[in-house]
Every structure is written in structure tokens, then in C-alpha cells.
Computed example of a mutant assay.
Amino acid sequence: MTAPAIGVEEEFHIVDTGTRHLVPRSALLLETLPKDRFTVEMQRAALESHTLPSPHLREVARDLTALRAATIAAARDLGLGVVAAGSAPLTDLKKMLVTPDPRYERIARDYQLLAREQLICATQVHVEVGDPDLAIALSHRLAPWLAPLLALSCSSPYWLGNDTGYASYRTLVWWRWPTAGPMAKFESAAEYEQMIEELIRSGVICDVGMVYFDIRPSAHVPTVELRICDSCTRVDDIVLIAGLFRALVVREQAAIRRDPHARVHLETVRAATWQAARSGMEGELIDPAEGVRGPAAWVVERMVAGLRPQLEEAGDWELVPALARDALGRGSSAARQRRAFARRGSLADVVDLLIAETGQGSALLTAAT
């Protein structure tokens, strides 16, 4: 049986290679990039790419690498750099601009500083799920397993020039939106859609695109969409997260058939997510299976081992554990950024590191092919 298809949406910051600051120049890059693979974000200092859906992780990796290469080449011609990270260390809020689009301009008017500070980038993974009711159930039931995936992606320790003390400060910035966080339990797609209609009617959100749950059924394709992760500096880490997320989706589908009425406690999910955002891979995480704290590497290794049947079924068992070992050996992007800063006390050095890592492609996958 063919494994469910995976698609990835990847958001990038645009920086000036001289000053290393964010700059609102994504429109210039988008003029030269394929319109069917790239799009604007609310802030003009960011843009988004998306892969074609594929059941094969190596194809996803090749597509991600090609899209990055195209973005980097377009930026280089303009004296710009591309950063795949949850936040960019150097930002002047006064120079940031919202994309001239009626929807984004309305959000900026309604949300004010919250919208102006929407200077964060994410990695979003779609896994094919054709049944809308099943997608709703999965979006609730998978919530406890997302914190380790966030920890693997943590890349936003710096915010507006300051060390936040968090591995993913993007998570805290994101949580300020009224529909962010884990998704409650809904009995059907119809009930979920009724909730969205009520939110839109209230005027608090303007459309379905503003439903920002950590995991949600996509509004435009038949998938479940993972939204909790920071943008990842390394393609290999995205592929690792995508492979684990697909395995979780497949495993939980079987669990739902056995027990369709199980409910997740969202309070414990938020606590586990906060813990992952705080410590990343360098501290402790809450193990989703046992609900106890343990070293991050131990939690991730247990998760990978527990997903072996699903990874084997998808043909990912050799690749995903190898990617996990590599990620655990390197540690988080947040930790590497702090080490870069410690050498000379320079955030410009941190930006240079992020630019370099964003351009590295997928070395492990190339070696494994």
C-alpha cells in the first residue's frame, strides 16, 4: 500500500547581507520565482514556498532543496540573504511593512501590534487524509505528540535583538493569536465548520485562514496540517519531522478506529508545548506516552522506536532513525545560534550562521541515495 502523500510549506525571512537586518523586499524576489511554487506572507520581509505532494521522503527533500536553491539565487542577485528560522535576530520594527493585500491590511488594522510583530516563520507539513471527519479527529488526538516535533525544529532564541531564554520564542509570539494552540475535540467535520462560522460571525477572525491551531484539517486540500514547528535551517530536519508526523498520522488512524471517543487534555498539551519551546533539544521534554519529564533525546528516541511499524510500512525505517540520530547529535538550531553569538557577542554572526545553514541542502540524504 502506498504511503500517504506529504507536502511541505516553508517560510523564509529575507535579510540584507550587509546589515543582517530583516528587510521588506520579498516582492522583488517573487517577481523572479515561479508563482505556482512561491507566495507572499503577511509581512513583506518573508515569503513561502511549497513542495509538490509526494509519498517519498527523498522526493520531498529534493524538492525542498531545489526550492531553497531558487530562493537563494534570486536573493543573491539582489544583495539579500535567505534565513530559514523561526525568527530573525536583527529587526527594526519601524521599517517592516505589511504586504499590500486587502486581507492582510484588514488583519493589520484589527490586530495592530500583534500583526506588526508577525515576524516569524514556520515549517508546515501536510499529510494526506481524505476523510474530513477523520481529519478532525486526528487534529485533536495527535496534539500530545507535537511537542517533540516542535523541539526538533526550535530555531528562534532571539527576538528583536534579544536572547529570550527560549529555544522557540516564535511559539510564544504565535500563541497570542485568538485561535492558536491545540485543537479541542469535535465530533464531526460539520461541528468543526460550525465553530469556524461562529468565529467569523463574531468578527474576531475574518476567514477560515485565521484558524491557527497547532494541527488542523487543511481548508484547501484533503490533508491534516502540522503547524507547530519553527522554520528549520536544515532540510534534513524538515524531512525527519515530516516522516515522523506521517507515521503518527497513520498510527493514530488505527487508534481512532479502536477507540473513537478518546479525549486529550489540552492543559497538559499546552504545558508540554511550553516545555518544548523553553528548552528545545538541550533540556527536558514531557514524554507523550508516560506524561513524565525526561531528557529530550530520550523522548525523541522513544517516539521513533514506537513508530517503527508505521515507518517500516512507509519504507522510512532506515532513513528516519538516521536523520533522528544526526539531529540529536547536532542539537537544536537555537543552541548553535547561541554558540555563534558567544564567540564574539555578535548577532551578525548568528545571521551569517543561519544564512549558511539555510543554503546547505540535504547532505545526509544525498549520501544515503
Rank of each mutant, 00 (worst) to 15 (best):
V98L: 13
V98F: 10
T99E: 14
T99Q: 12
P100T: 03
P100Y: 02
P100L: 07
P100F: 04
P100A: 08
D101P: 05
D101H: 12
P102L: 09
Y104I: 06
Y104T: 02
E105I: 11
R106N: 13
R106G: 06
I107G: 02
I107W: 03
I107P: 01
A108E: 11
A108P: 04
A108Q: 12
Y111E: 13
Y111A: 10
Y111P: 00
Y111W: 14
Y111F: 15
Q112P: 00
Q112M: 11
L113T: 14
L113H: 13
L114A: 12
A115H: 06
A115I: 08
R116V: 05
E117T: 15
E117F: 11
E117A: 13
E117C: 15
Q118T: 14
Q118P: 01
Q118A: 15
L119E: 03
L119H: 03
L119Q: 10
I120Q: 09
I120T: 15
I120R: 02
A122L: 01
T123C: 14
Q124K: 13
V125Y: 07
V125A: 00
H126C: 04
H126T: 05
H126W: 03
V127T: 03
V127Q: 01
V127E: 02
V127K: 03
E128A: 12
V129L: 02
V129W: 00
D131C: 04
D131F: 06
D131M: 02
P132I: 05
D133K: 04
D133M: 00
D133R: 02
D133N: 03
D133W: 00
L134V: 13
L134I: 08
L134Q: 15
A135S: 12
A135Q: 00
A135L: 00
I136E: 01
I136H: 01
I136M: 10
I136L: 09
A137V: 04
A137K: 10
A137H: 07
S139L: 02
S139E: 04
R141D: 01
R141T: 05
R141S: 00
L142W: 09
L142A: 04
L142G: 03
L142E: 09
A143S: 14
A143E: 09
A143R: 06
A143D: 09
P144V: 04
P144S: 03
P144Q: 07
P144R: 00
L146M: 01
L146P: 00
A147E: 03
A147M: 08
P148I: 00
P148G: 10
L149A: 05
L149Y: 05
L150C: 08
L150F: 03
A151P: 00
A151I: 04
L152G: 02
L152I: 09
L152E: 01
L152A: 02
L152P: 06
S153K: 00
S153R: 05
S153E: 10
C154A: 15
S155A: 10
S155I: 11
S156P: 11
P157T: 08
P157C: 08
Y158H: 13
Y158E: 10
W159Y: 15
W159I: 11
W159C: 07
L160H: 14
G161S: 06
G161A: 12
N162K: 15
N162F: 14
N162I: 11
N162C: 05
D163M: 07
D163Q: 10
T164E: 11
G165W: 11
G165D: 06
Y166R: 13
A167N: 07
A167V: 06
S168N: 07
S168K: 11
Y169R: 15
Y169F: 15
Y169Q: 14
Y169A: 14
Y169H: 15
R170P: 07
R170G: 01
